[in-house]
Amino acid sequence: MSSTLDAPIARPAAEQAAAPRTPTRRRYLMCPPRHFAVVYAINPWMDPSRPVDQALAVAQWTALKEAYQRLGHTVEVIEPQAGLPDMVFAANSGTVVDGRVLGARFRAAERAAEADHYRRWFLEHSFRDVVMPTKINEGEGDFAWTGRVLLAGSGFRTDPDAHAEAQEVLGVPVVSLRLVDPRYYHLDTALFVLDDRPGRQEIAYYPEAFSPGSREVLRRLFPDAVLASPEDAACLGLNGVSDGRNVVLPVEATGLARQLADRGYQPVMVDISELRKSGGGPKCCTLELRG
């Protein structure tokens, strides 16, 4: 399992910004929040005493789905299941690279049943290379494919041993990163990939969410990464989705949006405040189906 590479992944920021940004069409899996609620607390964002407007959550999710479709992306939808209020967070259901699927195994008992519903969806939709994990991993919540390496988070949810399992199942090099701030309990709350094309890999992240050693690894691999402010991290601004040009962000992440626009990206702002009551944002609702 890789922990570092010999050379930086991305080109310098000035060269990146000068090159035209071109989107690539993506295929996503989403789950409508028809059963969304906050009835338990498994992360610091969740407070069952705060009222949840379920109709508003559905409206915000629908607007997110329609934003992807307007950008030319394909959105597949899985049927939500009663009793699984967090099933809306499809990113946690697995990791798909080149058509290979590593399923999820959740740490919290409240979410455990989601894994098999998603497993069946993969098999029913022509994904034949589907492996369910033996170690706890929460899918793209803690795995981020950069196009060259799989960045893998641990510290709160996914087991460190799951990183080696992901490398074996998906056949890609894995770089382990340790999260240290419980507010950023998944990797996708503190980091996301802006561009995954060869020679143009670029990420954005919040350094304070990571251990000192992990920060140094990210600095070496991505010396010109976009670094988010505490304010943008605090609204889950790093829970974004990019197609290489268009970057879908929470509407509150204005500073991050300005940084991305300066580099030639096109921010697409969405309101997903209701789902944030469960610690989710655009990426949490979105699993990318690669290959």
Rank of each mutant, 00 (worst) to 15 (best):
V58L: 14
R219T: 07
V175C: 02
T286I: 11
E15M: 03
D159P: 01
T286S: 15
A209Q: 05
V39Y: 00
V149D: 08
L150D: 05
D271A: 07
D47L: 10
Q167E: 15
A228R: 01
L218G: 01
V58E: 10
S273G: 14
L256A: 01
G72T: 07
R119E: 15
D53G: 07
L170K: 06
A18Y: 02
R219Q: 12
D53C: 04
L221E: 02
G139Q: 09
Y184I: 00
D262C: 02
V174T: 12
A41D: 07
P12H: 05
D53E: 04
W145K: 15
K277G: 06
L29T: 04
K65N: 07
A14Y: 08
Q54W: 00
V130W: 15
P20W: 08
Q266A: 12
S214P: 15
D262I: 01
R21S: 06
A59E: 14
G281F: 04
A91L: 11
I272L: 15
V77F: 07
Y205N: 07
R219C: 01
T254D: 04
Q69D: 10
T62N: 11
G237Y: 06
S93R: 04
L275E: 08
D129Q: 14
R107I: 08
V101E: 11
P12R: 04
E76Y: 06
H117W: 14
I203P: 00
Y265N: 02
N92L: 04
Q266N: 15
S93L: 09
E288A: 09
D243P: 09
D86R: 09
H117N: 06
M132F: 12
Q16C: 00
L249E: 05
R245T: 01
Y68C: 05
V180C: 10
R178D: 12
R245W: 07
P267W: 03
R183L: 10
